[in-house]
Design a protein around this nucleic acid. Sequence first.
DNA 1: ATGAAAGCGCTAACAT
DNA 2: ATGTTAGCGCTTTCAT
Lengths: 357, 357
Amino acid sequence: MEPMAMSQDQDFTPPKRPLTLRDVSEASGVSEMTVSRVLRNRGDVSETTRNKVLEAARELGYVPNKIAGALASSRVNLVAVIIPSLSNMVFPEVMTGISDILDETELQAVVGVTHYKPEREEKVLYQMLSWRPSGVIIAGLEHTEASKAMLAAAGIPVVEIMDTDGDAIDAKVGISHRRAGRQMAQAIIEAGYKRIGFLGTKMPLDHRARKRFEGFTETLAKAGLEIADQEFYSGGSALVKGREMTQTILERNADEPLDFLYYSNDMIASGGLLYCLDNGIDVPGDIGLAGFNGIEFIDGLPKKLATMKAMRSEIGRAAAQIIAKRVADSSAPRGEEIVLEPELKFGETLRRKKKPF
Amino acid sequence: MEPMAMSQDQDFTPPKRPLTLRDVSEASGVSEMTVSRVLRNRGDVSETTRNKVLEAARELGYVPNKIAGALASSRVNLVAVIIPSLSNMVFPEVMTGISDILDETELQAVVGVTHYKPEREEKVLYQMLSWRPSGVIIAGLEHTEASKAMLAAAGIPVVEIMDTDGDAIDAKVGISHRRAGRQMAQAIIEAGYKRIGFLGTKMPLDHRARKRFEGFTETLAKAGLEIADQEFYSGGSALVKGREMTQTILERNADEPLDFLYYSNDMIASGGLLYCLDNGIDVPGDIGLAGFNGIEFIDGLPKKLATMKAMRSEIGRAAAQIIAKRVADSSAPRGEEIVLEPELKFGETLRRKKKPF
DNA sequence: ATGAAAGCGCTAACAT
DNA sequence: ATGTTAGCGCTTTCAT
């Protein structure tokens, strides 16, 4: 055997560089342009050449270079989705709604996470915009000036989601958290609860939780009530924290007991519910409980928690639909506003009407 | 004031197209090349020009075009992360581990979701690879032939995560699910349980759950035991399903009662635990329970569930570290294997030793 | 320390 | 139905 020949023939390894259209073109004997057309299903190509090209591409294992394609066509089928967190259970649901819609289009979601930090948001946004996406879906209406400027200047559809209490740069889809807080307060007042405690996250930058709280206290005030006590947490397992905070706040008010606990999310509310049940507290007789968000798993708890469905997947779907429409038709009007109605669930921890005397 | 001058100066609207380096170059009177150097902090640039450029860029609101940059430099700071699901709580944790590491580098994770469907995985992978990422982190060792071929041909570091029971294309990081199943079986056997039920997802393509099951039954067999009954679910709230399945399997075996239930994840196990407690079943006296995954919130349940920590964030971190190292040093050896040890937690639902007679 | 030229891998626009 | 040409907005390389 001739080692030389061998090393040329059998051991021949194509240079380890990604394949290009040109490689497919040469392998199939079809011009680059036609190869491009086949691979994108654009323009008329005869069955024969089409097959030749497809065959060659498959054989070589060619994967088109979207970077080059995007640069040449100045079309990028990416939608930047910017959210505060993934570990929250709420944002994965929004993502699901978004994907449900985008999966039917050419568009693809790319996620950036801000950890509720405005400066992180600014950075993530800058990174994302530098890929020149076709649209942006971003959580919340509060952003740094620089972020707002970037979004406004990007010249692409921007949908701010989750919250509708404030001014949007372009489109917005969400619920009014202030109103959600008011509605819950109203239900609690109507049920005759008087000594109300609030339990939430120590997170000044969670604007939606803040707005719910504001709406809540506002409505209480109109009924001549105010929050009797409050307790905040940060970090750790929310379920455990819910238990701990509940114990703390109940013990602190033992002499003049609370009769309702409003939690800023369902996870801590669930912890509170488990605490109450473990300690033989009658819910909702002695004390009523309510959370916020309607996370799926509360259905499996010993008692169904009162909560409000935050319409997360609907929000995701609506936002994605707006982007898809605007991308498809660049002359479509901007500034869409979709305000969804969160659904109040009384569950089994909030009475529907006053306790009879 | 001169209106003409005003409308030229203040009212002047730049054409609505994204800004380019050239715009910054013209605005600052510095060559495009030098502008590029300033913006990337590369090469020597005098303080004076540097400031001129930075000023102009800021003023215009210039956002670099990474598409063009990536094409010219053939460097893309993206890491494709391909996972089956986001709603699972497990993958967001892996993502967190990945981000923890990548945030210290130039690299950025881009997520693709497969919904446990091989053909979806193939498609997502193709999409991702067409952006020419610097590396791939992909869940599992089982992929279609085409997917494996793409990964092998991509010429970039590939880390397969979560599972180590099988052959990797390049690097792998995870735990041995087969071994995890064996260990749990061993603990159950040693505790003296005999009539064991299995409850899991109806998901033939969740290879990791399958391997745990195989390891589990294998070890039982060695001890002369076998699964007494099993029950599967799909869709719906896992906590609710856990309750329902538990009721079903317990009632079906009322005449010869089960004394242990092994669940394929902690969420259904939690539902089972709540069911048992609601119905006055003594856990772990009458019946022992164990799940898998160590989700954070089980700490808040009335009884701590026996489970196994699946080391998710550690897996994410290790995988990201491998990618980061290989990207930084392309001559680094490939094929890393990191097998992490899942931690068995007995909690309060699995006895540590035999019940005395 | 700065600039000029060439080209990354595609696609738009125009031939043919 | 297919091919040719000229960029897309950057960075690389080589001058100066």
